[in-house]
Lab assay of single mutants.
Amino acid sequence: LEELEQFAKTFKQRRIKLGFTQGDVGLAMGKLYGNDFSQTTISRFEALNLSFKNMCKLKPLLEKWLNDAE
């Protein structure tokens, strides 16, 4: 859980630094990986307001997006 919290915090900082909005991330993930995510979902991930199971599902996809974006 602590690792997920740290990743969510780091993800948000890096996303902002790269100049992407939460909506941008959701759209890009849909185009790149075929998984559409709403701005709300990205927001809830960053705020740790998703279930643990959903957080765990999203984390590898967001890590991949972040690596591709950088």
Results as ranks from 00 to 15, higher is better:
Leu1Gly: 08
Glu2Pro: 04
Glu2Cys: 04
Glu2Gln: 09
Glu3Gln: 07
Glu3Thr: 04
Glu3His: 09
Leu4Val: 04
Glu5Trp: 07
Glu5Phe: 05
Gln6Thr: 14
Gln6Glu: 15
Gln6Asp: 06
Gln6Gly: 12
Ala8Glu: 00
Ala8Pro: 02
Ala8His: 02
Ala8Asn: 01
Lys9Thr: 11
Lys9Ala: 09
Thr10Phe: 14
Thr10Cys: 09
Thr10Lys: 12
Thr10Trp: 04
Phe11Val: 03
Phe11Met: 04
Phe11Ile: 02
Lys12Trp: 02
Lys12Ile: 12
Gln13Asp: 02
Gln13Trp: 04
Gln13Ser: 12
Arg14Pro: 00
Arg14Lys: 13
Arg15Asn: 00
Arg15Lys: 00
Arg15Ile: 00
Arg15Ala: 01
Arg15Trp: 00
Ile16Asp: 04
Ile16Gly: 03
Ile16Tyr: 05
Ile16Thr: 10
Ile16Ala: 09
Ile16Ser: 11
Ile16Asn: 06
Ile16Leu: 12
Lys17Asp: 13
Lys17Asn: 15
Lys17Phe: 09
Lys17His: 08
Lys17Glu: 14
Leu18Arg: 05
Leu18Met: 07
Leu18Ser: 06
Leu18Asp: 01
Gly19Arg: 05
Gly19Cys: 15
Gly19Ser: 03
Phe20Ser: 04
Phe20Tyr: 15
Phe20Cys: 11
Phe20Gly: 01
Phe20Pro: 01
Phe20Lys: 07
Thr21Ser: 15
Gln22Phe: 05
Gln22Thr: 12
Gln22Ala: 11
Gln22Ile: 07
Gln22Trp: 07
Gly23Met: 11
Gly23Val: 15
Gly23Trp: 07
Gly23Phe: 12
Gly23Thr: 12
Gly23Glu: 14
Gly23Arg: 07
Gly23Ser: 11
Asp24Tyr: 04
Asp24Phe: 05
Asp24Gln: 11
Val25Ser: 01
Val25Phe: 02
Gly26Tyr: 09
Gly26Leu: 08
Gly26Arg: 06
Gly26Ile: 07
Leu27Tyr: 05
Leu27Ile: 12
Leu27Cys: 15
Leu27Gln: 13
Ala28Phe: 05
Ala28His: 08
Ala28Ile: 08
Ala28Thr: 12
Ala28Lys: 12
Ala28Pro: 01
Met29Asn: 01
Met29Leu: 11
Met29Ser: 02
Gly30Ala: 14
Gly30Val: 11
Gly30Ile: 14
Gly30Met: 11
Gly30Ser: 11
Gly30Lys: 10
Gly30Pro: 03
Lys31Glu: 15
Lys31Gly: 07
Lys31Phe: 05
Lys31Cys: 05
Lys31Met: 03
Lys31His: 13
Lys31Leu: 04
Leu32Asp: 07
Leu32Phe: 04
Leu32Arg: 10
Tyr33Val: 04
Tyr33Gln: 07
Tyr33Cys: 09
Tyr33Glu: 09
Gly34Trp: 03
Gly34Asn: 09
Gly34Thr: 04
Gly34Asp: 09
Asn35Ser: 09
Asn35Pro: 10
Asn35Glu: 14
Asp36His: 07
Asp36Trp: 11
Asp36Asn: 09
Phe37Cys: 14
Phe37Thr: 08
Phe37Lys: 04
Ser38Asp: 15
Gln39Met: 08
Gln39Leu: 10
Gln39Glu: 14
Gln39Pro: 12
Thr40Pro: 10
Thr40Phe: 15
Thr40Ile: 05
Thr41His: 08
Thr41Pro: 03
Thr41Ser: 13
Thr41Val: 10
Ile42Phe: 01
Ile42Tyr: 01
Ile42Met: 03
Ile42Trp: 01
Ser43Lys: 15
Ser43Glu: 12
Ser43Tyr: 08
Ser43Met: 12
Ser43Arg: 14
Arg44Pro: 00
Arg44Gln: 15
Arg44Ile: 01
Arg44Val: 02
Arg44Asp: 08
Phe45Cys: 02
Phe45Val: 02
Phe45His: 00
Phe45Ile: 02
Phe45Thr: 01
Phe45Lys: 00
Ala47Leu: 15
Ala47Gln: 14
Ala47Thr: 14
Leu48Thr: 13
Leu48Ile: 14
Leu48Met: 12
Leu48Ser: 12
Asn49Pro: 01
Asn49Asp: 15
Asn49Phe: 03
Leu50Ile: 05
Leu50Met: 15
Leu50Asp: 11
Leu50Thr: 07
Ser51Val: 02
Ser51Cys: 06
Ser51Lys: 11
Ser51Arg: 08
Ser51His: 07
Phe52Tyr: 13
Phe52Thr: 14
Phe52Val: 14
Phe52Pro: 02
Lys53Leu: 13
Lys53Trp: 08
Lys53His: 11
Lys53Pro: 13
Asn54Asp: 15
Asn54Ile: 15
Asn54Cys: 14
Asn54Gln: 10
Met55Tyr: 04
Cys56Asn: 07
Cys56Asp: 08
Cys56Lys: 04
Lys57Phe: 10
Lys57Gln: 11
Lys57Asn: 08
Leu58Val: 13
Leu58Asn: 02
Leu58Gly: 01
Leu58Trp: 13
Lys59Leu: 08
Lys59Ala: 10
Lys59Gln: 09
Pro60Ser: 10
Pro60Tyr: 03
Pro60Ala: 07
Pro60His: 06
Leu61His: 14
Leu61Cys: 04
Leu61Glu: 06
Leu61Asn: 11
Leu61Asp: 07
Leu61Lys: 10
Leu61Pro: 12
Leu62Ser: 01
Leu62Ala: 04
Glu63Asp: 02
Glu63Gly: 11
Lys64Asn: 11
Lys64Gly: 11
Lys64Ile: 09
Lys64Ala: 09
Trp65Leu: 03
Trp65Thr: 03
Leu66Pro: 00
Leu66Met: 14
Leu66Cys: 07
Asn67Asp: 14
Asn67Ser: 08
Asp68Met: 10
Asp68Asn: 13
Asp68Val: 09
Ala69Lys: 13
Ala69Asn: 09
Ala69Thr: 12
Ala69Met: 13
Glu70Asp: 10
Glu70Val: 06
